[in-house]
Structure formats: structure tokens, C-alpha cells
Amino acid sequence: MILALVGLGVGLILGSLCPLTIPVTYSKLFSVALLAGLDSVFGGFRSALDDRFDNMVFMSGFFVNGLLAAFLVYAGDRLGIDLYYVALLAFGLRIFQNLAIIRRYYLKKRR
């Protein structure tokens, strides 16, 4: 848990120091990939609470989901289908679901 937070902090510092910027045309793809990553992390947290955590599933989910989401949005852009909003909705829903389950877990534990 502590290690994860430390990793997050290091990543934040690196990201704010890194001079890298993403061109405007790709910022949509990047934000979808970011949302997919967030979803994976919350999913992993939830599965850890359920004692079902699998490292391989977590790792592959994080990277494959992010890349796949970005690729789908890119393809949708090319085909004239706005898959961007679909990805936002799908990942957003899942994040809220996972958060709700995590919240319930802690509420149950306090009783």
C-alpha cells in the first residue's frame, strides 16, 4: 500500500518535471488511456479487497486496456464514429462501480 503511494508520488513528480508534451491531436487518445489506467488501478484495489488480486491480470489490464482504448478512439476518429465518448462512459461507469464497492467494504468493516 505504502509502496503504491510512493510510486504514485514519484510518477507525479516525474510527470510534472518532464518537459514532454503531447500534441493536441493526440490529447484525446491520451486522456482515454489515462482513464483506462485509472479504471485498472481502482479495479485492482477492489480485487485486492476481495482477496482475488492477480498480478498478471492487473498488469496486463493496465497496459492492454490503456493501449486498446487509445487505439479504439483513434480508429473511431478515422471512421467518423465518436468512440471517445463511449470509452469515457464505459470507464467512468466502471470507476464509480469499483469505488462504490470499495466504500461498502470499508463501511462493513467499521461496523
Binding site: 510512493v6 510518477g11 513528480i13 516525474l14 489506467g37 485492482g44 493496465f62
Partner: peptide, 21 residues
């Protein structure tokens, strides 16, 4: 544990980048 830390680091990196953009 290390892989989780790594994933979190990547996530933090992306978050900071997106924030700056």
C-alpha cells in the same frame, strides 16, 4: 508489490502530464 508500485508510477506520470496539458 514492485509491479504495483511501477503501475502507480506510470499512472502518476500520466496524471501529471494530463494536468499540465
Amino acid at each position: 508489490h514492485l509491479s504495483i508500485a511501477f503501475v502507480c508510477m506510470v499512472l502518476g506520470f500520466m496524471l501529471a502530464l494530463q494536468f499540465r496539458i
